[in-house]
Design a protein around this nucleic acid. Structure first.
Length: 619
RNA sequence: GGGGCGGUAGCUCAAUUGGUUAGAGUACCGGACUGUCGAUCCGGUGGUUGCGGGUUCGAGUCCCGUCCGCCUCGCCA
């Protein structure tokens, strides 16, 4: 075999005259009869080969070149020369070509089901997944693999330099039926027992802190058996981190340093210091805990103004109480979004769609007013708002031609609805900028001071907003330990020591200071409705560990796939995973999951129960 | 589990209101061609319209079911 001396992305006019060898795939062939061009491709680039009888190519070599087809794997030897036909500016190697003297076909290909080209329409994703090895040959996919690799290396380098220890934690793990549905793995030795694949190494990393690791990092696979989305896979990658003997701000500073280093090394972008926003402010202004601050359309609580008008819907909602604590779901509020220029830009078709849209989040509807050239309100509810028109105009700084959208409901519903509505309006009006990778802004943000607990709608029980090992904020510990577990207003107001990093409206990392004190941990479990027995059954090892000298510790986890998505500028998580799965969790290339045979099932003491056939529909 | 969109040649797509033998580009095969670079030109092969049933004189098109893919709500501590 003619082993390569260079890659296909390497040779330049400085190499002219050199005798070289290249290996690669045929990217395209252009056969002019007595002159044949082959573009040879590998991961590094494309180089043009030429077979030219005027330059000594004999008939046998011409015949061999004549048979070359796309994706054949070849080796060649030849001489670098300046292109006679002129430069191709599209190629890095476009000034030169290789006059081939020897050719070896290393592997003739079957006609491939599609060609790994970035030009034209890509084959359907389903098809690209089935022949993933062909899809991955595309330069775009090679570039993504390269960016992902760079991110891995920058991550390891940064945390190594900061004293973090990389530790692997088990994939075969104990089931902890809190949170996401788990993948189960049956045990052969213990009939009827199952491992679970970890949703995250949360408990192990805390145990590592108790074990004195001090600083831990891992780029780890996590598994959640929930339905995927464009930016979610059942199997995904986290950068998992934990630190001992730190307070919240030290962890945040360390992680902020990581973000800035990562963006610098992977994208060459200088990220300014990250702004901080409390959960409450995020909810008030944006109606969501991961605000996209790239556009305005902020929402305002106008409850006290609305109380002075004659609109029945507002009055009814506000009558449900306004004197509750800050996060209280039983508080009635009126929220408004000011849309500059909205009188014209918001079409009837758009606004007609907004009421059904917010109804999906439990809200009653959206009221709209438009400000005419004289500054008067128009549309159906204008006359009810007349008593507060001047105050509202001043408060929201309304100008002629603007519009205002109102949602009135209980705090939780109105906030959620207006937050979702804001995003739809932004999309409708084309206010969302292009991605950072395409030259748009990178808006990073810390969100802090989350509530510890929220009420589960179905069971009406408290659930941990982050996870049950998250500590109350330092100044809340006393109040938390003293709080009556039945005092909803107080419990709802307890603030945690959690923190998220939000990028352009997407959560890219989340973490918290952990509980290192058994009394606090026990109270959290009690609040979540776990008896001491249940808590011990599920988390005995953690509770024990906390009793045997657990240092104060805190950590965070980054969604690695999402980071790479941002570097690439894609909204499809499957683009950044080498071998992704479909929405039903199938790998179309390998055919996983597959049926297990009788013997395999017997080994692990499992019996497969077929789905019961559905009742015949009546004819 | 719910809602939406899609499935036609190896691939990307078209096919009028339900109406002739389901077309085009590309890939592939054959031929021509000495400077191309998404080469060009000429010719050719290639179809269970995802699958099953129904309506109809007639179904790629309409109806029912089903499978698969994508988007989305629920879900994702």
């Amino acid at each position: 075999m003619l082993i390569r001396t260079h890659t296909c992305g390497q040779l330049r006019d400085t190499n002219v005259g050199e005798n070289i060898r290249l290996n690669g795939w045929v990217n395209s062939y252009r056969d002019h009869g007595n002159l044949i061009f082959i573009d040879l491709r590998d991961r590094y680039g494309v180089t043009q080969l030429v077979f030219d009888p005027d330059d000594g190519t004999d008939a046998a070599l011409m015949a061999a070149a004549d048979k070359l087809r796309n994706e054949d794997v070849v080796a060649c030897e030849g001489v670098v020369r300046i292109r006679i036909g002129g430069e191709n500016p599209k190629l890095a190697s476009g000034k030169i070509e290789i006059v081939v003297k020897k050719l070896e076909v290393l592997n003739k290909t079957e006609p491939p089901p599609f060609l790994p080209e970035d030009i034209g329409n890509l084959p359907a994703e389903e098809f690209r997944s089935k022949y993933r090895y062909l899809d991955l040959r595309r330069p775009t996919m090679q570039k993504i693999l390269g960016l992902r690799h760079k991110a891995y290396q920058a991550t390891r380098r940064y945390f190594d330099q900061n004293g973090f220890l990389e530790v692997e934690t088990p994939i075969l793990y104990k089931s902890t039926p809190e949170g996401a549905r788990e993948f189960l793995v049956p045990s052969r030795h213990l009939p009827g027992n199952f491992y679970a694949l970890p949703q995250s190494p949360q408990l192990f990393k805390q145990i590592l802190m108790v074990a004195g690791c001090d600083r831990y990092m891992q780029i780890c696979r996590c598994f959640r058996d929930e339905d995927p989305r464009a930016d979610r896979q059942a199997e995904f990658t986290q950068i998992d981190l934990e630190m001992s003997f730190v307070r919240r701000d030290q962890v945040m500073a360390m992680m902020e340093g990581f973000v800035r280093t990562l963006w610098k090394e992977v994208m060459g972008v200088e990220v300014p210091p990250l702004a901080r926003m409390t959960y409450r402010e995020a909810m008030e202004r944006f109606g969501i805990d991961r605000p996209d601050t790239r556009y305005a359309l902020e929402s305002r609580d106008i409850s006290s103004l609305a109380a002075k008008c004659d609109f029945g819907v507002f009055k009814d909602v506000l009558a449900k109480g306004q004197d509750r604590p800050q996060f209280n779901s039983k508080r009635g509020v009126v929220k408004a979004i000011h849309v500059p220029g909205g009188a014209d830009k918001l079409t009837r078709k758009m606004t007609d769609g907004y009421t059904p849209f917010v109804k999906g989040f439990g809200a009653g509807g959206v009221a709209t007013v438009k400000v005419n050239a004289q500054g008067a309100f128009e549309t159906g509810i204008a006359k009810f708002l007349e008593p507060i028109r001047e105050d509202l105009t001043r408060e929201l700084n309304l100008k002629p031609g603007d519009a205002v959208l109102f949602v009135a409901d209980l705090y939780a519903i109105a906030t959620k609805a207006i937050g979702e509505l804001r995003q739809v309006v932004a999309r409708d009006l084309g206010l969302i900028p292009k991605s950072g990778a395409e030259g748009g802004p990178w808006n990073f943000l810390w969100v802090i001071d989350f509530p510890m607990f929220e009420k589960d709608k179905e069971s009406n029980r408290w659930v941990a907003m982050h996870h049950p090992f998250t500590s109350p904020r330092d100044d809340q510990l006393e109040a938390f330990l003293a709080a009556d577990v039945n005092d909803d207003d107080t419990i709802e107001g307890i603030v945690s020591a959690g923190y998220d990093i939000v990028l352009n409206g997407q959560e890219i990392a989340g973490g918290s200071v952990r509980i290192h004190d058994q009394a606090v941990q026990s109270k959290v479990f009690r609040l979540l409705g776990l008896t001491p027995e249940q808590a011990r059954e599920k988390f005995s090892f953690l509770l024990e560990a906390l009793a045997f000298g657990a240092p104060p510790h805190a950590g965070i986890a980054f969604g690695f796939d999402r980071l790479v998505m941002n570097f690439v500028g894609t909204t499809n998580i499957r683009d950044v995973i080498a071998f992704p799965k479909t929405q039903t969790g199938q790998d179309l290339m390998t055919g996983a999951p597959g049926v297990a045979n009788e013997a395999q099932l017997r080994d692990v003491h499992v019996k497969s129960i077929p789905i019961e056939p559905k009742a015949e529909p009546k004819a």
